[in-house]
């Protein structure tokens, strides 16, 4: 279950990066266009576009293992979720709204640290796939000596 502080963090405009690996243990990195915590707080849904995440989706279909790091740009507060693929599906209306809300918050965060808004608005975030992930572990990832400790 995702603890309250991490849940709270994930409601903000966090930067979401996703790590997977293939059968040769070659890692892959991509960006997700938003994260939404599931009702029971033991799963999350992330939004990926096929154009930039083809290999990630292949890896997920192949072995299901995933690491998701979420960092709030303005204060570097961060966590990492480890999990396993539940489903891959086209993003529905609710997913699109969740992704859009996240994007608005994320752009606000980036503008606050000096990134021009027009650059952030130019990102191609749709059409997206919704990837449902069962969360197995949660780790602190705020930079410093405590990073990596299990929450």
């Amino acid at each position: 279950m995702i603890p309250q502080p991490v849940f709270d963090l994930l409601q903000t405009g966090v930067s979401v990066i996703v790590g997977t690996r293939d059968s040769t243990l070659m890692p892959e990195s991509t960006r997700a266009w938003g994260i939404h915590v599931g009702k029971n707080r033991d799963s999350v849904t992330i939004f990926l576009t096929e154009a930039i995440s083809r290999k990630t989706i292949e890896n997920l279909k192949e072995n299901g293992l995933v690491a998701i790091s979420c960092t709030r740009p303005t204060d570097h507060v961060a966590c990492q979720l480890k999990g396993r693929l539940q489903t891959i599906r086209p993003a529905g209306q609710r997913d699109r709204k969740n992704s859009s809300d996240w994007h608005r918050e994320f752009v606000e965060e980036l503008v606050a640290i000096g990134v021009p808004a027009d650059l952030c608005e130019a990102w191609i975030t749709a059409p997206a796939l919704a990837i449902d992930i069962d969360v197995t572990d949660v780790f602190h990832q705020t930079p410093g000596p405590g990073a990596g400790e299990k929450v």
Binding site: S15, I17, V18, G19, T20, R21, L25, M26, P27, E28, S29, R31, N63, L65, V66, A67, I68, S69, T71, A78, Q80, K82, Q141, P143, A147
Partner: peptide, 20 residues
């Protein structure tokens, strides 16, 4: 802008983090 770095342990567990 920090970069995302993904690695993988010998047992196949992926890991991802930002590096400055």
């Amino acid at each position: 802008i920090p970069a995302a770095l993904s690695t993988c342990s010998q047992d196949g567990t992926p890991n991802i983090t930002f590096i400055s």
